[in-house]
Each structure stands twice: as C-alpha cells, then as structure tokens.
C-alpha cells in the first residue's frame, strides 16, 4: 500500500483554517482594542489568570486554537514561499513546521505553568 504523509499534514491544516476563520478575527479585534488602550475587563490579568488557571477546558481550548492555527499558517506559508518562487520546499517545510511545533509546545508549557 502506498504510504503518504499528506493526511497528517493536511488534517491539522484544514482544521486550523476553520479555527482561524471562526476565532482569529474576533480575538484580533479584542487585542486591537487593547492596542488602542481600551483593555476589555475579561482581558485583565486577574480575569485571564482565573479562567486559564482553574478551567482545564479553557486551557485545552486555547491550546487547540493556537496549535491548529499555527500549523495551518505554517502550511500555508510553505505554499506561499513556493508560489513566490522560493523553490527549496524541503528546507522551507522543515523550518516552518518546526517553528509551528516549537510555538505550540511553548504554548502548552505556559498553560501548564499557569
């Protein structure tokens, strides 16, 4: 049977694309408010900390959103690099996927430490 690593790369890419579409615009809107100096009450240290320190489900949700979005972005950036004429796909793929995995592990570590 022919073996391919494509499903492994593709599933988190498609899931991540959906997660980005549903969640990243509203999250970016919230941090845009912060950038304009209007910090929403729920984004204060106390509120964020109590949510993420006590609720395992919130931790899992945050990790899921970040890890899938990072992987999906890495995969799309890989295609973007190729489309812009950077034809060293193996190296680009290795760098971007590693970056996504490292950032996801860092997110998991931060959530664990909370």
């Amino acid at each position: 049977m022919a073996k391919s690593n494509k499903p492994v790369v593709w599933f988190p890419f498609a899931a991540g694309g959906t997660v980005i579409a549903f969640f990243i615009p509203v999250i970016a809107l919230l941090t845009l408010l912060v950038a304009f100096g209007k910090v929403p009450a729920g984004l204060s240290y106390e509120s964020m900390h109590s949510w993420l320190a006590d609720c395992v489900l919130a931790k899992l949700a945050v990790f899921g959103i970040l890890a899938l979005s990072l992987w999906s972005s890495a995969h799309r950036l890989r295609c973007t690099c190729f489309d812009f004429g950077l034809r060293i796909d193996t190296l680009v793929a290795a760098v971007l996927y590693s970056a996504a995995i490292v950032a996801s592990l860092a997110a998991a570590m931060f959530l664990f430490r909370l």
């Binding site: 990243i24 941090t31 964020m48 993420l52 990072l70 931060f110 430490r113």
Partner: peptide, 25 residues
C-alpha cells in the same frame, strides 16, 4: 496570492498570542 499572504499576518499574530500567554504565565 493576496489570500496566501494573509497567512503571514495570521501566523505572526498567533506567535504574538503565544508570547502573551508566556507573559501571563
């Protein structure tokens, strides 16, 4: 291509969110 480029901003933004999580921790 303009849709492809959005991945650069979204990816960078996610890295920024991870940094924020680090600051929170």
């Amino acid at each position: 291509m303009s849709r492809e480029i959005t991945s650069l901003f979204v990816g960078a933004y996610c890295v920024l969110l991870v940094c924020g999580l680090g600051a929170l921790a």
